[in-house]
Simulated scan of single mutants.
Amino acid sequence: MATGTLLATAACSGGSDSPGTASGTASTVAERPPAAQSTTPSSTPGGELTKAGARSALITESDLEDDWNPVKDPSTWRDSLLLGDVDAAKFLTGKSDAQDCKRLMDSLYDETLLGSPSGASAATGFEQGDSRLYYQVAAYEKADLDQSMEWLKSLPSACDEFTLTGGDHGDRTVQVVERTLPGESEARQGLTVSVKGTSDGDPVTLTLDVAAVQVGANAITVTNGGLDGADHDSTDAAVSQGTPRLTEVLAGGTPKPTPSGAG
């Protein structure tokens, strides 16, 4: 994405794993079967998350605020502003914190915030102007997920502000700030990550909301933002609408589709 088009330009500069544009008019992944078509639960109470259950737990544009539109394949989204090496010399605690910050930037680039799922997963994406929202539901190894959530909680302190070097955009200043997510019962962590650098010689700031909600050995992850900033209300809506959907699926139910305009 350049100044006028967020991740689209960056996708072109992201290399061979960043094919073309990701926009479309519908998301086949995001579609959920109506409750009337389901004769058995998506997953049994206490059982593992199934592929059908993960799809059923996804939100749609009706769950979000404003005018978000679904895209066909959000897995192709990449932003080269996130690529580079962390300047470890400026860290008081040295290489350990620098490695954590590098892991954060890499995971934001390839949408592996909590690591690779060990079980079923489904993802969908939406765009609004130059901003994009990526939403994933996935099952993980419980111990690995616990560690990933603790790692996320450490980042506002460990990473705070650092310099990203190299790549196609030179030196960039990155700030990591904690933000509160709606809800209280499940383990959750929110961040806002801003990357200040240049694109095509012009100064730009990429701002991303990052959210993770853990439900047992399963989790929701949200990445939302762009060069025009992050819409915090949409991030909160995704968490507020998506968490009970996943909880219902894990209890053996099939959430009803959200009525249009009820986000």
Rank of each mutant, 00 (worst) to 15 (best):
T165W: 03
E31H: 03
P156V: 04
K102T: 08
V86Y: 10
A251R: 05
T254F: 01
G167A: 07
L208E: 15
S27G: 08
G24K: 01
S148P: 05
G20Q: 15
Q128R: 15
D233A: 14
T25A: 06
G166I: 03
S148T: 06
E111D: 14
K90Y: 08
T39W: 10
V249H: 08
R245K: 07
A187T: 15
N224W: 02
Y135P: 01
A123R: 12
D146E: 15
D17E: 15
T258D: 02
Q37L: 13
A123Q: 13
V204D: 08
L152T: 12
K142R: 10
L145G: 01
Q175A: 15
P244D: 03
T60I: 00
R245Q: 05
E248Y: 01
D87E: 13
L49A: 01
S107G: 10
R179K: 12
L133Y: 01
A8K: 05
A217K: 12
T192A: 13
V71M: 07
I220Q: 06
K153Y: 06
G252T: 06
D100E: 15
T40G: 09
S121P: 09
A251L: 08
S157C: 07
W77K: 02
S260E: 14
A139N: 05
A22F: 07
G263S: 01
D233F: 03
T93D: 13
V177C: 08
D79W: 09
A262K: 10
K95G: 09
S240V: 02
A2M: 07
A212T: 05
L191Y: 03
T76I: 08
D160L: 03
P117T: 00
L227H: 09
R78M: 07
G125R: 00
T235N: 15
G226M: 02
K256H: 09
A54Y: 00
M1T: 13
L92M: 13
C159Y: 03
D110A: 08
G47Q: 10
D171R: 02
G115E: 02
G170F: 07
G129P: 11
L208R: 15
F126G: 00
P203E: 11
L113Q: 09
N218D: 11
P244V: 02
E31D: 11
V137Y: 02
L181C: 06
A98F: 10
D66C: 08
A262S: 13
R132L: 11
E31A: 04
D231T: 14
D144T: 12
G47N: 07
H232A: 14
Q37Y: 07
L58F: 00
V204Y: 04
K51Y: 04
E150P: 05
T40S: 14
M149L: 14
T223C: 05
A138K: 00
Q147D: 15
A88G: 14
T254G: 10
T180Q: 11
S43T: 10
E184K: 11
K72D: 11
L49T: 00
A30G: 15
L83N: 06
E248P: 03
D168C: 12
S154E: 12
F91A: 11
A122C: 01
A2Q: 12
G14L: 13
